[in-house]
Design a protein around this nucleic acid. Structure first.
Lengths: 232, 232
DNA sequence: CGTTGTATCATACGAACGTATGAATGATAC
DNA sequence: GTATCATTCATACGTTCGTATGATACAACG
């Protein structure tokens, strides 16, 4: 494959987003045209981003996995980064809903906090690629993308308020509420996050049946004890 | 700068590591020849790998930051991956030493476990780029490089034994020791890891003076309560 | 029928990547 | 002074990346 093209035909016209992308409204209910492709791209992108990171998951790999053309990402999302943000948005939204539901439940403040921990545990168990995903964002050191920032703010605000309520009722130990939120959330996140090396390196697989249930109980018990005020 | 070389001189001879690299013994005490370059490369690589990840930190960026020539990494380490492993090795070694020292201290098993948590906290506070580093490895999902695997095994084994001893003495709650190790370690790791977004997004900066001390006390108290058997 | 516009396709561009190569450089040994 | 050899340097190779481009396919509508 030698380079035989004529060099005169290419003019760098520095314009961005020149192709007319369909807006959400346009695509909303126009039958099957492109909708399946968009969905397949998001599914493949989510898996590959989680497995290989943002840089590691090439557009070629994503479109190949999704059975779409190389240009599909640019066409449907505008850029690789926009696809990434869309994947993140779809990933954090249900977690936020779960937490909100756990906070609205009955029981003491500590019980409800356990519900939050369990919500994380359940959500991450159901979507094991998600913690990698979020941690990759955090580990990158840069400001998280808007959807993640928004979810962080919302969840930490809600759970902070719960902790504060528990402290006022004497059910939760004194201390900065935000620090308790971090300690609570660190339990399920860290456990799910190290599942893979835990199995590979230390030979303990918490991803299946009985061991997973045991791990869940441990996480909840540890968090409850760390939170509870019934302790010196 | 056109391509004017003769195309006949290039023969793809599929051989690897063709250049005679100096062994560790050779370089050990040969004055200042190259030693400073090697050190500078490791320092720059550590920072840039932590900031941008493995793929994000290019050899050009590393050598540029270190004031070395583009070919320096290939010459001194053989490949980018080998430099990465060397950086990882130097990063986890002192942590392992700290943990070993904490385990050898006086006090109850719970006190010594707190020493381990504090060792993590101190080490990561001193080297804030390290958790990102390790988590990038974990988040990647692949098997960790040999130096990290070895450290994981050593530390988890030692701390597991401590937990088991505490359980036999009735000082630590019942449960799988490895799960307690994870819960303990998750506290300082997660806290240090989210320092940046914690400051950026939630406006709480635990990286300086008073707030850091408060965060350390919280982490220790939470871990102690989660571990201790003096609790229902 | 033809027109219109969304979607898909093959292909190319320019940039950045890790690595290879061979020529300078400079200290040490004789 | 000259030979030796570890190191540094400029530069090139081949690959892969994200994106751009223009042709093509095809359903909807007159």
């Amino acid at each position: 494959m030698n380079d035989t093209r004529t060099p005169t035909s290419q003019v760098p016209t520095s314009r961005g987003a020149s192709r007319p992308r369909p807006s959400d409204a346009d695509v909303a209910d126009s039958g099957s045209g492109g909708e399946a492709t968009v969905e397949a791209l998001v599914v493949s992108a989510r898996r590959l981003f989680a497995e290989r990171g943002y840089d590691g998951a090439s557009i070629r790999a994503i479109t190949g996995d999704a059975g779409a053309n190389l240009g599909a990402v640019t066409y449907h999302f505008g850029s690789k980064e926009a696809l990434y943000h869309e994947v993140l948005r779809q990933a954090v939204a249900p977690l936020r809903d779960r937490v909100t539901r756990a906070l609205a439940a009955q029981g003491s403040t500590v019980d409800r906090a356990m519900g939050v921990v369990d919500a994380y545990f359940a959500h991450f168990t159901q979507h094991p690629d998600l913690p990698r995903f979020l941690l990759q964002e955090v580990a990158a050191g840069r400001l998280p993308p808007p959807p993640v920032m928004e979810a962080m703010r919302a969840i930490s605000g809600q759970v902070s308020a719960l902790v504060q309520e528990g402290q006022e009722k004497g059910e939760i130990r004194a201390g900065h509420p935000l620090l308790f939120v971090l300690s609570l959330i660190s339990q399920p996140i860290y456990l799910v996050l190290v599942q893979q090396p835990l199995a590979d390196v230390l030979g303990m697989d918490v991803r299946s049946g009985d061991a997973r249930a045991k791990a869940r109980e441990h996480v909840l018990a540890f968090a409850r004890a760390g939170l509870s005020a019934e302790h010196p």
